[in-house]
Computed example of a mutant assay.
Amino acid sequence: MTGRRPGEIALPFDPGTRIEAGLTFIGHVRSPWAKGTAPKNLRAARETGQGARIELRPGYAAGLAGLEVGQAIQMLYWVDRGERDLVLQAPLHGSGLRGVFALRSPVRPNPIALGTVVITSLDREAGVIGIDATDAWDGTPVLDLKPWIDTVDVPPGWRPGG
């Protein structure tokens, strides 16, 4: 485990030893990012202008039916090279300590990340989806894809900033 910031608290156990469900990876992210080069979040990734792609594993390409270029999708991915033991963290972008469930940090008991991305190209036959950006490292496993639907994914009456 890497060094801790003041006040951070690690779990007294390894969450990876408490496996209670099985997952299958449907594909992998292909991006220009690696440890030390990745943007800190999806907003920063978009600012780089670097696109990426999702390559589905064999057998999943038929699941792309109904998706279109220009459509937003939610990509759930497994931060497989991340740490997973911090429950209280000291984020660099904020003041004070915050619980893992109040952060988008990749350090979490289940290293599942969510990014809403835009489809920039689509090869249904090959099972390859071009996306506008990602902060995921090259080779990061993809758990699932879901369409972003404003009437479902935006809370009723919600406005930015409050």
Score class of each variant (00 low, 15 high):
L88M: 14
L88N: 07
L64I: 09
S95E: 15
P91D: 04
L56Q: 01
L76W: 06
G63Y: 08
G94L: 13
Q74A: 14
A72K: 12
G59Y: 05
W78E: 00
D80R: 09
G82Q: 03
L67P: 05
Y77V: 01
P58Y: 00
R81C: 03
D80Q: 09
G70S: 06
G70R: 03
A62N: 08
V69C: 13
L67H: 13
D80F: 00
V69N: 13
Y77D: 02
V87H: 02
V79L: 15
R84C: 06
E68D: 12
V69S: 12
W78F: 13
A61R: 14
A65F: 11
Y77I: 01
R81A: 07
A61P: 02
I54F: 00
A65M: 10
Y77H: 14
M75W: 06
Q89E: 07
D80P: 00
L67A: 11
H93N: 15
L92P: 09
P91H: 11
L92T: 10
L88G: 07
G66D: 11
Q74Y: 10
E83H: 08
G63S: 10
Q74R: 15
L67V: 11
L92H: 10
A72F: 12
G59C: 06
Y60D: 00
V87D: 03
M75P: 00
A72G: 04
V79T: 10
Q71F: 01
L92K: 07
Q74P: 01
L56E: 02
A62H: 03
Y60W: 14
A62V: 09
A90K: 15
G66Q: 10
I73L: 12
L56G: 01
G70Y: 03
R84L: 02
G63N: 08
A90S: 15
G66V: 09
Y77P: 03
G63L: 07
Q71H: 07
R84S: 08
R81L: 13
A90G: 03
L88R: 15
L56M: 00
I73E: 05
P58V: 00
G82L: 01
M75K: 04
Y60N: 13
L56D: 04
P58E: 05
I73T: 09
G94C: 05
I73C: 04
G70T: 05
D80A: 14
Y60Q: 11
I54W: 01
S95N: 14
G70M: 06
R84D: 02
Y60R: 11
A62D: 11
E68V: 10
A62G: 12
L92Y: 06
I54L: 14
L92W: 10
G94N: 05
A62F: 05
L56H: 00
